[in-house]
Simulated scan of single mutants.
Amino acid sequence: MESLLISTGVVALAEIGDKTQLLAFLLAARFKKPVPIVLGILAATLVNHGLAGALGAFITSHVSPQVMRWVLGLSFLGMAAWTLVPDKIEEEEAQVAQRFGVFGATLVTFFLAEMGDKTQVATVALAAHYPNPVLVVAGTTLGMLIADVPAVFIGDRLAGRIPMKLVHGVAAAVFALLGLATLFGLGAGLGF
């Protein structure tokens, strides 16, 4: 259960201000059809994070625990730094939306936007860190929806009121704590 809760919280925080959240704003403003946009976000995230979770589980089974501790600890610290850098949406990702309909456009653009994104990398690291990658993927997907669904429904009205630096700082602090706890073997009984 801890893996689900940590994964949900970390990704929900990391996703605020991320390019996929900006993409959700853009698609909502362009199409004004929230249900297919939300379903596209869900499908793209399940596929993307499912693959990331499988990679994390694969890495865990092929790397020694000592090496894994250092790789994960440093990865979490790297995620902390990366979270402090705001994302911008790429124009070509937004243009895909005009060819595939609302659901298809959301599915394709979100899947492509998530490739190599910090939430995908976080999913790999969390799935390698926790013993149940299915709960990690469920948590990261839920975290993605917690951050992106409100963007679809209330978009611009909400965007200006969120203290982005504070949210990114909290997310970075959570990643940093996970990294330090992993590196120093703290919380071994707590699942770290």
Rank of each mutant, 00 (worst) to 15 (best):
S75A: 08
L72C: 03
I59H: 00
P131K: 06
A128K: 00
T109W: 03
T123P: 04
M115G: 02
L51M: 10
V71L: 15
Y130H: 09
A94Q: 11
T123V: 12
L72A: 05
A57C: 05
R69D: 13
S61Y: 05
P86F: 08
A52P: 01
G116L: 14
H49C: 04
H62L: 12
F58L: 04
Y130I: 10
F103W: 14
F76N: 03
F58V: 03
D87P: 09
E92V: 08
A57W: 12
Q120R: 09
V134L: 14
S61D: 09
H49Q: 14
P131L: 03
F76I: 13
Q95R: 10
V134E: 02
F76R: 06
R69K: 11
V108Y: 06
T123C: 09
S61E: 14
A52N: 03
G56Q: 02
E114T: 10
E91P: 08
M115N: 13
Q98C: 07
V137K: 03
H49W: 03
D117A: 12
F103K: 07
T60Y: 08
A54D: 02
P86I: 15
E92K: 09
V67L: 09
K88H: 14
H129D: 01
T109L: 15
G50E: 04
V121H: 02
L142Y: 03
L142K: 06
E93L: 15
L84V: 09
M79W: 07
L107Y: 04
V136T: 11
L112N: 02
L51P: 01
T123D: 07
P86A: 11
V96I: 11
G139T: 10
V67S: 05
